[in-house]
Nucleic acid binder design. Structure first.
Lengths: 129, 129
DNA sequence: GTATATAGTATCAAAAAGGATACCGTAGCA
DNA sequence: TGCTACGGTATCCTTTTTGATACTATATAC
């Protein structure tokens, strides 16, 4: 159920890159994992931090992360329900990856106005047209 | 054209994680970048390494990477055509990220038979049912 | 004269991802 | 008595992504 694209890694030679991206590449997974780096959280707690996510999506993503062994879901037999999510050991091993993603994003996406590099070689391109 | 999901980063507080994933998160982008870390490559050269990719997909992904300023496309006005792709400076700055993804993938996805952690808490879960 | 390699486009279709909305059952609060 | 919070499901729909296939132009080799 809801297995995304984890099953097929056909890129010969080896692309652990793809394999990893398949696990954390959903729209919300990266951020969820990043938030969970800070500690255990309840469902709605996560939801509030990911403003914009729907319940269905959040449930889906959390379930996939759980199925992939990256997070641990603990439901307390209470009413109203209380469900906690935290990183598994496996998930925590992703910390350097997440932090690398975050560091690069901070340095290269949000800060600068990245100029279109596609201007220099346009002269060559137009020569072929 | 072909802008994927780069435009909207609504996850408040800041998720450079998402921002980065949006750039490298396509099905092939990560691998393409990884291959380009090794040096300049021609179109079909990349294609052969990504066995399974279609021409259309490869073109798309390369165009997006170029539009995002991560790679540089150089077309030589020859016939038959010769087009080279290489990392831009911006793209090369992704090297630690790519390597982190690769390292984790090698260590955690391909090697071990990752046991389903979802067994311990099942007792609690069933108690709620 | 035909085939091949090059780097693509164009068009159509399928699959996957993501989103909107409504609903559930109970506890606690007013 | 009705409201809200909790952590979801179920259903339907739209958008995005991916894939299959056919087509282009020309130089070179056969």
């Amino acid at each position: 159920m809801a297995r995304t694209r984890h099953e097929r890694f056909d890129c010969s030679g080896g692309c652990p890159v793809e394999a990893t991206l398949a696990l954390i590449g959903g729209k919300w997974k990266g951020v969820i994992l990043w938030h969970l780096l800070h500690g255990t959280m309840r469902f709605n707690e996560i939801r509030r931090r990911l403003s914009g996510v729907t319940q269905r999506m959040l449930t889906n993503q959390l379930r996939e992360l759980e199925a992939d062994g990256l997070i641990i879901r603990t439901v307390y037999p209470q009413v109203p329900p209380k469900v906690e999510y935290c990183l598994s050991e496996h998930g925590r091993s992703l910390e350097p990856v997440i932090l690398a993603l975050k560091a690069w994003g901070e340095a290269n996406v949000l800060a600068p106005a990245l100029p279109p590099v596609s201007s220099i070689k346009e002269s060559m391109t137009s020569a072929a047209a």
